[in-house]
């Protein structure tokens, strides 16, 4: 028993030396000549196991999973980070409540924000977006909302493309086009920035290689983490969204059924043109 324990410790030490420190099998065996005969086949097996188990997720899957996770992150953070009625006058709060109640009820609206176009709650999601836009007074905040809604359309396109529904992909593509057009109008009306650059206006998270996350936010809030505070900051965020959305859509092309490819290519073209216009307007 004691011998077993001692051998297990030696075996594990050799493993650490080979796996972590990069020592060769031979070097390790030289350290323990008495156990070398027993250690050798086991360590060889470990090397085979280790090499064989180094599987990697497919890049397309990684891109899609990352995108969906970030969308879920945004959805989760949105209600808590946005005291939706905290900043608006009382009359607007009352109006919004009436609208929301008329539409379906608060719980339904919250559930609807995660809904996809094949859900019965999806019309509530679209209506809620319009209410949010109507109740937001600052142009910058409306532009941020609009950019966030464009991101949502991209997620929906990917979702429907994945399910092989070319018709829905076309319908949502038109909605994406509308959102990006609206964004162009909104950013055209934004005032020019002062001397501060985008770097000063957009807090960049630690660990760098992450694309900036766009969080929908209504006006009147304090400066949030990663939130653009002027048009230069907004441009950085929109450029990040454009690159990310573009990459994910391209990655999806190989994944979707043949019947959806054409609709998805059209969506990519709309996305490219739309974001190009937005970024030009933000120059």
């Amino acid at each position: 028993m004691k011998k077993d324990k001692e051998f297990n410790n030696i075996f594990d030490e050799c493993l650490e030396r080979i796996v972590v420190d990069g020592e060769t099998l031979e070097q390790c065996l030289e350290r323990y000549p008495e156990q070398a005969a027993e250690l050798k086949p086991l360590l060889e097996t470990v090397l085979v196991v280790k090499e064989a188990s180094a599987v990697e997720p497919r890049p397309e899957f990684k891109a899609r999973a990352r995108y969906q996770f970030r969308s879920a992150l945004q959805e989760k953070a949105a209600p808590k980070r946005r005291p939706f009625f905290g900043w608006v006058p009382r009359w607007a709060t009352a109006l919004a409540i009436v609208l929301v109640v008329l539409m379906a009820g608060g719980g339904t609206v919250a559930a609807a924000s995660n809904s996809m176009p094949d859900s019965i709650l999806y019309p509530v999601k679209l209506a809620t977006e319009n209410v949010q836009l109507a109740l937001t007074t600052s142009e910058l905040s409306r532009a941020r909302l609009c950019a966030g809604f464009a991101d949502r359309r991209v997620v929906e396109i990917i979702y429907m493309a994945d399910r092989g529904d070319a018709h829905q992909v076309e319908v949502i593509t038109r909605r994406l086009d509308d959102r990006l057009d609206m964004l162009v109008v909104l950013v055209s009306e934004l005032e020019a920035d002062d001397a501060n650059g985008a770097e000063a206006m957009l807090s960049v998270p630690d660990g760098g290689d992450m694309e900036p996350l766009l969080v929908e936010e209504t006006a009147g809030q304090g400066r949030g983490h990663g939130q653009p505070q002027n048009r230069a900051g907004l441009r950085v965020v929109v450029a990040g969204s454009a690159a990310n959305n573009h990459a994910v859509m391209w990655a999806m092309l190989d994944e979707v059924p043949e019947s959806v490819r054409e609709a998805l290519l059209e969506a990519i073209a709309v996305l490219e043109d739309g974001y190009e216009d937005v970024l030009q307007a933000l120059e």
């Binding site: 990697e56 997720p57 630690d206 992450m210 983490h225």
Partner: peptide, 24 residues
């Protein structure tokens, strides 16, 4: 505390390892 960047960083850090764990 709903910091998306922090969660995104945890995600990136662990995603491949969890994938490999489940693969086996």
């Amino acid at each position: 505390n709903n910091d998306q960047e922090a969660f995104a960083q945890l995600y990136e850090e662990h995603f491949d390892k969890i994938y490999r764990y489940l693969a086996l």
